[in-house]
């Protein structure tokens, strides 16, 4: 049986950066009258990236700022559809890129659980069945019916994490959010991720912290200027990366 969960084939994501101001009809009209064309620079956030990840693997993605890490995750999370190349995914992807995406701070914790759950693609009934478990994991029982603008930032993050990870996903995407909430909650969330990993979830981690990559991942991918510079066993790649960063 084919156990490939994520496969990217020659994926290129190109952003167009206009040299001048934000495009408006007005700008276009003026430019047209002056017979000037609009000039752009094309910037490849991802350049011909190909790799595949098998079920149950834990892969770390490293690289400098602007190397394309976030774009890569967005492509896998279906936020950006590449115009060139192919992304193939099997299973439900839980992106922990934006915890509590779509949270409405005027609404209560309870309302936001349904809202964020719907944003993540769960039905209302499904969330209603799991409401208690989510609230309990987030530890916000007493504040359920208070607007979340009254929550501390830690509580909001805990709630977001609890909703996003309540059901075991096939693929878990983690972007530097291993440090959610206080120490207790960090332990609890790490334990949950580990538990999912042991049960077969594939995990993708982006982090600038070499230790957390080494601890969590078996394989690492080093991105530089939108391309994979190096990929392989985590220790080899991390050694190379740290000696490169130092020099």
């Amino acid at each position: 049986m084919d156990t490939t969960v994520i496969q990217l084939h020659n994926v290129t994501v190109r952003f167009r950066i206009p040299h001048e101001k934000i495009p408006t009809f007005q700008e276009y009209a003026i430019r047209w009258l002056k017979r000037r064309s609009v000039s752009y620079t094309d910037f490849n956030a991802l350049n011909n990236v190909s790799f595949s990840i098998q079920q149950g693997e834990t892969v770390g993605i490293i690289g400098a700022n602007g190397a394309g890490k976030s774009t890569l995750l967005k492509v896998i999370a279906r936020v950006i559809r590449p115009k060139q190349g192919r992304v193939f995914l099997k299973g439900r992807v839980a992106p922990l890129l934006e915890l509590g995406a779509g949270f409405d701070y005027e609404m209560t914790g309870r309302e936001n659980i349904f809202l964020n759950g719907a944003v993540l693609g769960f039905s209302r009934r499904d969330i209603a069945n799991r409401l208690e478990r989510i609230v309990e994991f987030a530890g916000i029982e007493e504040f359920m019916d208070a607007p979340i603008r009254t929550y501390s930032s830690g509580m909001v993050a805990r709630l977001g994490f609890a909703i996003a990870t309540d059901v075991q996903p096939d693929v878990l995407i983690i972007d530097e959010i291993l440090s959610v909430g206080d120490t207790d909650f960090q332990k609890k969330s790490a334990a949950r991720i580990l538990h999912y990993h042991e049960n077969g979830s594939t995990i993708l981690v982006v982090s600038h912290n070499p230790d957390s990559i080494r601890n969590l991942c078996s394989r690492a991918m080093w991105l530089a200027q939108g391309s994979i510079k190096m990929a392989g066993p985590v220790d080899v790649i991390m050694d190379q990366y740290s000696s490169y960063s130092k020099s």
């Binding site: 492509v75 279906r78 559809r81 590449p82 190349g85 192919r86 992304v87 193939f88 995914l89 099997k90 299973g91 439900r92 992807v93 096939d170």
Partner: peptide
């Protein structure tokens, strides 16, 4: 099982 293929 859910599948997603950006090209297809």
């Amino acid at each position: 099982m859910l599948e997603y293929d950006s090209a297809k």
